[in-house]
Computed example of a mutant assay.
Amino acid sequence: MLLKDKIIVVIGGEGLLGKAIVNGILHEGGVPISADIKPIKDSNNDIDYIMVDITSKKSINDCIEIVYKKYGKIDALVNTAYPRNKNYGRNFLEVEFEDFCENLNIHLGGYFLTSQQFIKFFLKQGFGNIINFSSIYGVIAPSFEIYAETTMTMPVEYAAIKSAIIHLTRYMAKFLKGKNIRVNCISPGGIMDKQPINFIKNYNSLCLNKGMLDKDDIIGTVIFLLGDISKYINGQNIIVDDGYSL
């Protein structure tokens, strides 16, 4: 029970990775709050669900107030949201400037705004913990060859957003020196989500053992960073990718 009685807000808690994180927290004795802009599909009586818009300061602060009033504290925030507009994922040469800016605004801007508002709360509370989610493509350049024979690509917005999230994490950790608030980042490799067979095969050829990860393969790292056993890890980006980025 590594997270016994810890109150943890998971932004994007209804997403593929978010749901796995929420369940992992519950398994380790924590109290997960699934906060998402999407409607809840499968509810669990052991989990609190809150609607939140990460581009709205009021929505974020309403979330903080609801959780604090019920539990009297918030131990940690996990940012897993993956917002994007309808034109996201186009080929580099087809991306419109307006779409590029909008996607950076809602994703990177949303991470900034959520973290900023929670940090204000954590400063008053006297402690806190933030985990942001980046990607291996925030660390290395894309391997475009793995997308051959598929309709997929690696969106340029994704590279810009995820690399910025890593440095935003470092910035916030340093800014909060001496305040008893940790900020770390996790950069997963590819996670199985019904991708084409050709892509999976190409991707796996660049890994060391398993290849594409399952969503639950990330949970151990999340639990580690949320728990007290990692209390002196701060400002770091932990890559979990089966060696893909080597």
Rank of each mutant, 00 (worst) to 15 (best):
L2T: 04
V10A: 15
G15T: 14
G15K: 00
L17M: 04
L17C: 03
G18Q: 04
K19I: 14
A20P: 08
N23G: 02
E28Y: 06
G29K: 08
V31R: 13
V31P: 07
A35I: 15
A35R: 01
D36A: 01
I40F: 12
D42T: 10
D42K: 04
N44A: 01
I50S: 05
V52I: 15
D53F: 01
S56A: 06
S56P: 08
K57A: 15
K58Y: 09
C63W: 13
E65I: 13
E65H: 07
E65R: 06
G72N: 10
D75W: 13
D75L: 11
A76D: 10
Y88I: 14
G89I: 05
E98N: 07
E98G: 03
C101W: 11
N103H: 12
L104P: 08
N105E: 08
I106R: 12
H107M: 03
G109T: 14
G109F: 13
Y111R: 00
Y111K: 00
S115T: 11
Q117V: 03
F118Q: 04
K120W: 04
F121Q: 11
F121M: 13
F121P: 08
L123C: 01
K124R: 10
G128Y: 06
I130V: 13
I131F: 01
I131M: 03
S134M: 08
I140T: 13
A141D: 11
Y147R: 10
E149G: 03
E149M: 09
E149R: 00
T150K: 00
V156E: 12
E157W: 10
A159Y: 11
S163H: 01
T169H: 02
R170L: 02
Y171V: 14
A173K: 07
F175I: 10
L176P: 08
L176S: 09
L176Y: 02
N180V: 11
V183I: 11
N184C: 05
C185G: 04
I186T: 06
I186N: 02
G190E: 07
M192S: 11
K194S: 15
Q195A: 14
I197C: 13
N198K: 11
C207G: 03
L208Q: 07
L208D: 10
L213I: 13
K215R: 15
I219P: 15
G220K: 01
T221D: 06
T221F: 12
T221I: 12
V222H: 01
L225N: 05
K231P: 15
I239M: 03
V240F: 00
G243A: 02
Y244K: 14
